[in-house]
Every structure is written in structure tokens, then in C-alpha cells.
């Protein structure tokens, strides 16, 4: 049974697109058929993070409006054959996305893929509610910081009211993904710690992604962190999160990059 997953947050810049790419690649590497949909119309970025920006011909709006077939718009990943991308439009008006159009695209994708992952735009407006509309599962991406936690709370409210499942009286399965986490700063009390955020938002924890320069390197290169540097702490955290999404019961850990001073000095030169 195909699952529709929305990666959402309310706040921008918290790591939705990064997480969509990383988790999508992790699930696909584990043999699942995965499609990533960029819902950020006008500000598309998922193609760039995936390294597919030069291969975009048609986009989600073309498909919704019937100007292109779904098969023409899907971009198959060159590294992982079971991973595809449906890019957003960079130029078109986001009002071109109709409810029925999105609904029929998702229905069609559910026939072909195991996971349909929707990368939500920031905000709580139409773009964000369209992205979550058909979700069975939601990942609420949150940074350990007051404004991000507040916005996540708003989004959780929307997941419980504005989704198709909510309207039918069913539940959307919600998971918290804590990203850009700095264990040292949380330990010193400079940043909300994991327990604080969990207690406030009270949804189950999918994973903790450490703040890491490896994430930036990966996006510079146009490769999800789970493909670009699978051994890095952030990638390991994403792999674990992907396993939990597939129903494996694993304890949540905070992976760390084991780099001493030596490693840091020479890691720099090797980069």
C-alpha cells in the first residue's frame, strides 16, 4: 500500500527540503519506490538539492493543467533508480495548483510508488495545506528554537483539521524530526533540549539530525546527504529515521561525527 508523506513545518529554513531529499534517498536505497514532489511553487529548491536542476522539462503545474503527462515530468534519479522527482514550477503562479488536479496526480503516483513524499512550502497558507491535504503520514520538521516550535504547533493543528484524513475522522500519523540540533549547546542550556520540544509538541520522535557542515557540502554538490556522505552523523540519523518510517522500532540516538582535532585539521584539507 502506497503511503503519502508530507514534510512540513510552518517555518521556513528549518530543513524540510534537506530532509525530503535525505529521507527519500534513504528509503529508495533500501529498495522502496519513492517519488519526491516539490510543492514549493515559485521557490522550488528540491531539484537543486537533488542535483536535477538541469533535467527539469515539465513540472507539477504542467501535469495538473494537463500540458504534460506525469511520465514526462518525472525525473528518474541517476544514482538510485527507484527514486524519482516531480519538480515544482519556478515561474508559474501557485494558484494554478487546483485541489482536484493535485488530487489526481497523487492518486496516479500512489499506483506506481511505495512512498509519495511531499516537500511542503513554508507558511500555513494554501501551498502548505495543499501539500498536506492527502497525507497519511506527516513529518513535522522542527529546530530547537522558540519560533520553530511555535510554528510546528500550528502545523500540527492543521494536520488535525485540514487534511483529507482529518475530515474523514481519521488520524494522520505525525512524527517529529528535530533538525539542526547542537547537542553541546542544548547541554549548556543555550538551546531547547530534546525533552523540552517533545513535551511541548507531544508527538512521537522520528529522529534527531545534528547540525552539520556535511549537510551544506552535500547540497552544494546537489546530492542528498544520505548518498553524498552516508557515514556522516547527519546521514546516519536520516537512515535511522527512514527505518522508523518503515515501522522498525529503533531507539533514537544522536549520532555524532567522531572527529578529533586531528580529523578536523586534515578533514579540511581533504575537502
Amino acid at each position: 500500500m502506497a503511503k503519502v508523506l508530507v514534510v512540513t513545518s510552518g517555518k521556513g529554513g528549518v530543513g524540510k527540503t534537506t530532509s525530503t531529499a535525505a529521507l527519500g534517498a534513504a528509503l529508495a536505497s533500501a529498495g522502496k519506490n519513492v517519488v519526491l514532489i516539490d510543492f514549493d511553487v515559485g521557490l522550488r529548491n528540491l531539484d537543486l538539492v537533488m542535483g536535477a536542476e538541469r533535467r527539469v522539462v515539465y513540472d507539477l503545474i504542467n501535469v495538473v493543467q494537463g500540458d504534460a503527462k506525469l511520465a514526462q515530468a518525472l525525473i528518474r534519479d541517476k544514482r538510485v533508480p527507484t527514486l524519482s522527482l516531480l519538480p515544482a514550477s519556478q515561474t508559474r503562479d501557485k494558484d494554478a495548483l487546483t485541489d482536484e488536479g493535485v488530487s489526481s496526480v497523487i492518486t496516479e503516483l500512489k499506483e506506481k510508488f511505495d512512498w509519495v513524499i511531499c516537500d511542503s512550502p513554508a507558511g500555513i497558507e494554501r501551498g502548505a495545506t495543499l501539500a498536506m491535504r492527502h497525507a497519511d503520514v506527516a513529518i513535522v520538521v522542527t529546530n530547537p528554537e522558540v519560533s520553530s516550535v511555535r510554528d510546528s504547533d500550528r502545523i500540527i493543528g492543521l494536520l488535525d483539521s485540514k487534511t483529507e484524513r482529518a475530515e474523514k475522522g481519521e488520524r494522520v500519523e505525525k512524527h517529529l524530526l528535530l533538525t539542526r540540533f547542537d547537542a553541546a549547546r542544548a547541554g549548556r542550556g543555550e538551546m531547547l533540549n530534546v525533552g523540552d520540544v517533545l513535551e511541548i509538541l507531544s508527538i512521537p520522535l522520528l529522529g534527531i539530525i545534528p547540525e552539520s557542515s556535511e549537510v551544506l557540502r552535500a547540497s552544494n554538490l546537489g546530492s542528498p546527504i544520505t548518498l553524498n556522505n552516508p557515514a556522516s552523523a547527519a546521514a546516519r540519523a536520516y537512515f535511522e529515521a527512514a527505518k522508523r518510517l518503515n515501522g522498525e522500532a529503533l531507539d533514537v540516538t544522536i549520532p555524532i561525527d567522531r572527529k578529533g582535532l586531528f580529523g578536523k585539521l586534515f578533514g579540511r584539507r581533504a575537502a
Binding site: A186, E190, D196
Partner: peptide
Amino acid sequence: TSTAPVARERLQLLLAHERAVS
């Protein structure tokens, strides 16, 4: 340095209210 407890308390108060309103 320990500003996190303040953040946590402020959030708890604010969200209790926002949830009630929404």
C-alpha cells in the same frame, strides 16, 4: 547561559493559549 528553561516556559504558556483559541 541557561536560557532554554525560559524559552520552554514561555512556549508552554503561549501554546496553551494558542491551542485554546484555535
